[in-house]
């Protein structure tokens, strides 16, 4: 299903670029990311700066739940050409952000773990959303000490999770194409 979804996103993006000239907005930035070996497990710490577009903020305040994805991949380098590289591990961390009008708070939910937090402001909510701490990445035994590995990270907004009525328009609106560049660094203990 994930593969289909990825293909579909690419398809819509392609159609949008061709017909509407929509360009992917670089609204998210990965400020810092590093790995550390604790025990026999590599852990990831990262800070992502999420800057929501006006359209996204308006939709959030109007009750639309926003979904974000953090894609993490560990790649074993096998040569100069990327073609020979091999993905050792990949995972997607999914988060939702929702405004609660009664309490006037923002609820951040980490879908993978089910943990949520209510935060008093949007800036606090996006700050908390961007903090990744001690996320298990892969076991040490999966890593060949003689080989070279890189970790790459990308944050993006999931249009497919928007309500159907707005989804079609979102495909053709640049404000909804929010993502970061791939942030790449060597896997270090």
């Amino acid at each position: 299903m994930k593969i289909y979804k990825k293909n579909l996103n690419f398809l819509w993006f392609f159609i949008s670029v061709i017909f509407v000239g929509v360009a992917e907005a670089k609204s998210f930035f990965i400020e810092h990311a590093e790995t550390g070996l604790i025990g026999d497990t590599y852990y990831l710490d990262a800070t992502v700066n999420y800057q929501l577009s006006d359209q996204a903020q308006e939709a959030l305040l109007k009750g639309v739940e926003l979904t974000f994805e953090l894609k993490i991949e560990v790649i074993r380098k096998k040569g100069l050409l990327w073609l020979f590289n091999k993905k050792v591990s990949q995972s997607v961390q999914r988060y939702t952000l929702k405004y609660q009008p009664l309490t006037q708070q923002y609820k951040v939910l980490h879908i993978n773990s089910g943990k949520s937090r209510n935060l008093p402001s949007l800036s606090t909510a996006t700050w908390i959303l961007g903090i990744v701490a001690d996320l298990p990445l892969l076991k040490q035994e999966e890593v060949n000490p003689k080989a070279q590995y890189v970790v790459r990270l990308k944050a993006l907004f999931d249009i497919e999770s928007l309500p159907v009525p707005i989804r079609l328009l979102a495909y053709f609106a640049p404000g909804w194409y929010m993502s970061s560049d791939w942030y790449v660094w060597p896997l270090e203990p």
Binding site: K62, G63, Q100, V164, P165
Partner: peptide, 25 residues
Amino acid sequence: LVSDVQLAYDEYRKRSYLRKPLKII
């Protein structure tokens, strides 16, 4: 009751926001 009110308000605002896109779609 609080949950119901919040849910109803939230849903209504969302629908109100989605009214135009809903018409379009």
